[in-house]
Amino acid sequence: MKYMLLIYGDEQALSETERQECYTESTQLAHEINSNGQYLAANPLHPTSMATSVRVRNGKRLVTDGPFAETREQLGGYFLIDAKNLDEAIAIAARIPTARKGTVEVRPVIEIPGLPTE
């Protein structure tokens, strides 16, 4: 089963060095779970100041600056993994560096037919 691990943390909290360390550790984790066949994708995201929100209402496009919601912790990256069950997904989530300071939200992915595959 596929799980999306959404990584939330205070995007102001890390120094540049800490951010690089976080990337290194996350890359290492990605390689480890890849060797078990559990890795599907992962990426950090640019901060919410880079975000643009798009809505279409009555056929009219509304484009605004900023994230969907202003929150204390922001979505800063994700892992898409393949795990046997929720406990396995939780075990991987707990190894993501930001889990120690922020929060990792584990969401099971709905598989729908007809999506393009690689």
Binding site: M1, K84, N85, D87
Partner: peptide, 14 residues
């Protein structure tokens, strides 16, 4: 069912 909480006794670490 949907999040697939396993029907299992947890591992020693957990």
């Amino acid at each position: 069912r949907d999040a697939r909480i396993p029907y299992a006794v947890p591992s020693k670490t957990d």
